[in-house]
Design a protein around this nucleic acid. Structure first.
Lengths: 204, 204
DNA sequence: CACAAAAACAGAATTGACTCAATTTTAGAA
DNA sequence: TTCTAAAATTGAGTCAATTCTGTTTTTGTG
């Protein structure tokens, strides 16, 4: 039996996430008081803390949903990459960046990133690290695919290269969300310029 | 005249920083209560907030001292770099990493990094960004030096390369401080492996 | 159906960072 | 030396996240 308790639990989870997402957008992370989230979700404060360890974990759950969508969107590029290394990387990274701001504001990203380094052992901290690893893995998969097709040199250390590309992109993204006035187009151009060095090194 | 007021001010600054540094080490960042810092520094809570905007700024002042030392230590390497690109990068990065844990614990680094992304416009947030830029600039200077000496190709985009190397190193350092059991030697080896790709691409 | 144990809920109490109005100290002019 | 305005200090009070303990609901069993 699926059980009344289990159903109510799932429902409460959903209500809390929805209420929090709405309030984070409206009022920002700091501005969204736990009390308000509880009221809007129609649960008590205590119940929220029964479901999430702390306020950061609530944001974490929202961020995780988002990053999983990004990973999904990236699969298509890995399966059928553009016909040269530069465009392939640019396309994948473009998807990451564009999607990332679809549901989450820069402020939400800042908070999420801060929490993940501040509390690396909290549920969200660990989830965030795992998500980063998945993104690195996807870039690495793209490189492997390009090597297969014969677009990239076979003798390249694909693992190290994947990390290099991800780490650089991620750091650029962090700086990007730290400045409210920074534009997506500029971020993409800067990363492309940096990647050009790598593209030259690994193209056949 | 240097003035009584100015002298007392400098003295209070010093006392607050020393008290905070000691307590951060002993009890961790969260564990060090403002009230305790105030007591140990023999000032009132209000005075601390007269000198620093918030708790993070106190840590920020400590971190800034540390990073400036790191920058200083790096100057020597840029002035007289080892005789090949790989060793030159490894030596500079080695200095950064080894120095970084001299005065600051991993926990203090985690907090500092978190604060700098959470509040990028606070005094410390801005200072931290500037410090990152200085480190990037130093790596770029090393590359320029290597190009001068004829150890690196002249046609490389030095600015982009410097950013790439710094961003990768920094991200690796972030992951490093997130895991208490991570070892310095492993970090250095991983970064060396990643840089090898770049070294191959830019060596003459 | 009745009941006991387990799970979940509620919200008052606690805690600690930060604010602010009142008080004290300093600098410098008369 | 005395006085006044500016600067600095103080700590009690505020605010919001988190904890804690008693209550209610659900489940499984006889």
């Amino acid at each position: 039996m699926s059980g009344l308790r289990a159903r109510q639990k799932a429902d409460r989870h959903r209500r809390i996430i929805e209420a929090a997402a709405a309030l984070f957008r409206e009022a920002g992370y700091e501005g969204a008081k736990i009390e308000a989230i509880a009221a809007q979700a129609e649960v008590s404060i205590g119940t929220i803390y029964n479901y999430y360890e702390n306020k950061g974990d609530i944001l974490g759950a929202i961020v995780s949903l988002e990053v999983n969508e990004v990973l999904n969107a990236g699969r298509g590029v890995v399966a059928r990459p553009p016909a040269n290394v530069g465009d392939a990387l640019d396309t994948l990274i473009g998807i990451y960046i564009e999607h990332s701001l679809h549901y989450l504001s820069k402020e939400m990203w800042r908070q999420a990133m801060a929490i993940s380094t501040q509390l690396p052992d909290s549920p969200f901290g660990q989830a965030y690290t795992a998500l980063d690893r998945s993104l690195t893995e996807q870039i690495r998969a793209l490189i492997a695919r390009l090597q297969e097709i014969g677009l990239a040199r076979q003798d390249i250390d694909g693992a190290a290269l994947g990390e290099l590309i991800f780490n650089n992109m991620n750091m650029m993204f962090i700086e990007f969300v730290k400045r409210d006035e920074a534009k997506i187009a500029e971020l993409r151009a800067a990363v492309r310029r940096q990647n050009r060095i790598l593209v030259a090194a690994i193209g056949v």
